[in-house]
Amino acid sequence: MDTVTDGAAVAPRLVLLGRRAMRCAAGCRGASVFLRCPGGEGHSASSHPDLAVLAALQEETGEGPGVDAARSLRTVGAVDLVADTRWPDFRIAALERGLRACAAVPVAAGGVPVTVTLYAFRPWRPTAAAREAVGVLAEETAGGLLRERARTGAEAEAEQLRTAMATRAVIDQAIGIVTHLLDCDPGRAFDVLRVLSQRTNRKLSAVAAQIVRAKGRGGTRELRRLLAELP
């Protein structure tokens, strides 16, 4: 996913998702979002630097509510981290930052897993309706990124095709000019252009464009010499 792997394009979407998720869950005081691209690269965004630290810690240790939720594709949380000891490193880091509860909501849309982790300063559990709403928002975000990727990919492919067609047209024109100047067949004319490209260390399209611009004037002698050298 080329556009999804572009952090500059993905980050604003994840920030917006986090803000919207917080508004869906009464009692939530912070959120972090993690998205895993099809190629394996991860992107994250958090509403506060402390939450970014917790997200990075989970990635580093492979433990935490977000990691477990992503693996199981089920909501994983802790109503009170003072009593819940499932993730020692994460738990200590969260409590040190004044956090008491968390809930990680995962979705997988079009092969793109997204996990939204919500945090609270007091013992807390998001309602089923809140979890469902957060999941819908995450699916919408992943779907939007996939559609953007598809659109960008189609535009890039179309541009490559246009460039290839324009390049082919210039080369064909140059072959026509060389064929006329040297009174040879198109295959031999193409070989002359290819050798000229190699010896001048320029792209074939650039050599062809120069010949087309000059309409073959000024280079006939060199072209004849190259033709004579061909096997």
Rank of each mutant, 00 (worst) to 15 (best):
T75S: 14
G135N: 05
A166T: 14
G64D: 03
G135H: 04
A45G: 02
G98I: 02
A21K: 00
R122Y: 12
D183Q: 15
V114I: 07
L35H: 00
A78R: 02
V105G: 01
F34N: 09
M1S: 12
E157M: 11
R225S: 14
R151V: 13
S205W: 08
G27W: 06
G110Y: 08
D183S: 15
A52D: 10
R20N: 12
H43Q: 13
R188V: 12
V114F: 03
I211Q: 01
A104I: 05
R162L: 13
D172C: 05
R168M: 10
G39L: 13
V170S: 05
V195A: 12
V105N: 01
L73A: 14
P106A: 06
G110A: 09
Q160C: 12
R217D: 14
E157F: 10
L17Q: 01
A101C: 10
A206H: 12
M22L: 11
M1G: 09
A154N: 12
D185H: 15
A55P: 04
P106K: 03
V178E: 04
L182K: 01
C184S: 14
A206S: 14
T117H: 00
V192Y: 04
P88L: 05
T5W: 03
P12R: 04
V212G: 05
A138W: 04
G40N: 08
A108P: 00
L204G: 06
R217G: 12
L196V: 12
R97E: 01
E59N: 10
A70V: 03
A45W: 01
S32V: 01
R221Q: 14
P126Q: 03
K203M: 14
G62R: 09
V112G: 00
T179P: 00
R225M: 13
